[in-house]
Design a protein around this nucleic acid. Structure first.
Length: 318
DNA sequence: CACTTGACCTGTCCGC
DNA sequence: TGCGGACAGGTCAAGT
């Protein structure tokens, strides 16, 4: 589930790999993944070169020399993986494909395919695969694959200057890792959802940008706040502490290359390791590392929610 | 109006 | 072994 750290990791990778490359071909197999008409793609993407790769919230932008950009949202299962031209020719890649096509390896689940103990670069040899929605080919023979098993994600081509006019961009809240995002700003943003449960407010992209289910649970545990606490019951100290925890978990995750819970990979097809450092997310049944109470999983704001029932008590005063 | 729930999708896992 | 159904969650539309 790409959230801010995962999308940022992809951005960093693509910023190293894409600028200067010239697009020669784009194919897609699912219109909702890439709805632009062919003539528009031919006019504004083909023969254009990549000038920059940017991120805002969980949205990626690949700017082109034509004045157009790809705007991309990975949603839950989206991947953007860059694969250099296979210089060894087709002999080796054929062998790889035979391996993939054999009954045994076909039954290995995607979550295990790239798991620990497997060569982390094996994914790139298997692309494109059946989750590949869009393939962008560059003049040197390299490819950028937009894979999306569940088809929730999308990418579209649009004029760069019109990106700020997208409804989402107009409504989205501040970037939590900006220095200017201080407790006072966080507090006033939270007041937009003063009667909501804090978890719902953290997931609201208009309050702050880039938090999803993993980092909501992780930061609430860090700040010892129950996810069902109403926003207007939080005091100044708790808001300050929660912001500190948000910055901490997001920065730590970026450092670890993001979280690979199911199928997230970076621009080179590699997994992130933040999940190994998680304190509550997917830790139900295990002891809390602060107090040893068993971590539980419940449902809050329609989302699976992990918490320590001892450290994170629901406030009952006033 | 503020807030919550359902729809969009596919693959996995669990119980029967 | 197969099958139905619950579940996973980012965001928008629809519902309360």
């Amino acid at each position: 589930m790409p959230e801010l750290p995962e999308v940022e990791t992809v951005r960093v990778g693509l910023s190293r790999l894409l600028p200067g490359r010239v697009i020669t071909k784009i194919v897609h197999d699912w219109d909702k993944s890439f709805p632009n008409p062919v003539n528009e793609v031919n006019q504004f993407a083909i023969s254009a070169s990549v000038t920059a790769v940017r991120r805002r919230a969980k949205v990626l932008m690949i700017d082109l020399s034509s004045g157009y950009s790809f705007v991309i949202h990975l949603k839950m299962t989206g991947q953007l993986v860059f694969v250099k031209e296979h210089k060894q020719g087709k002999v080796e890649s054929k062998k790889e494909k035979e391996l993939v096509a054999s009954p045994m390896s076909r039954q290995v689940s995607p979550s295990l395919r790239f798991g620990a103990g497997h060569p982390s670069d094996s994914l790139v040899n298997r692309l494109p695969d059946k989750s590949t929605r869009v393939t962008i080919t560059f003049s040197d023979g390299s490819n950028l694959y937009f894979n999306d098993q569940r088809k929730f994600g999308w990418m579209r081509l649009m004029p760069t200057i019109l990106i700020p006019e997208i409804d989402f961009m107009k409504k989205v809240g501040p970037e939590p890792l900006e220095d200017s995002f201080q407790p006072s700003v966080f507090g006033s943003q939270l007041m937009k959802r003063k009667n909501s449960m804090i978890k719902a407010a953290l997931l609201d992209q208009t309050v702050l940008a880039g938090i999803g289910n993993i980092y909501a649970d992780e930061s609430l545990w860090g700040a010892k706040i129950h996810p069902e606490t109403r926003v207007n019951k939080l005091n100044e100290n708790e808001i300050k502490l929660l912001l500190k925890e948000i910055k901490y978990v997001l920065n730590l995750s970026i450092e670890k290359g993001g979280s690979t819970d199911r199928n997230y990979v970076n621009a080179e097809g590699k997994r992130g390791s933040y999940i190994d450092f998680a304190r509550v997310f997917r830790k139900e049944g295990q002891p809390c590392q602060r107090c040893s109470t068993t971590i539980i999983k419940t449902r809050v704001a329609g989302r699976g929610t992990h918490l320590c029932p001892t450290c994170q008590q629901l406030k009952r005063l006033t």
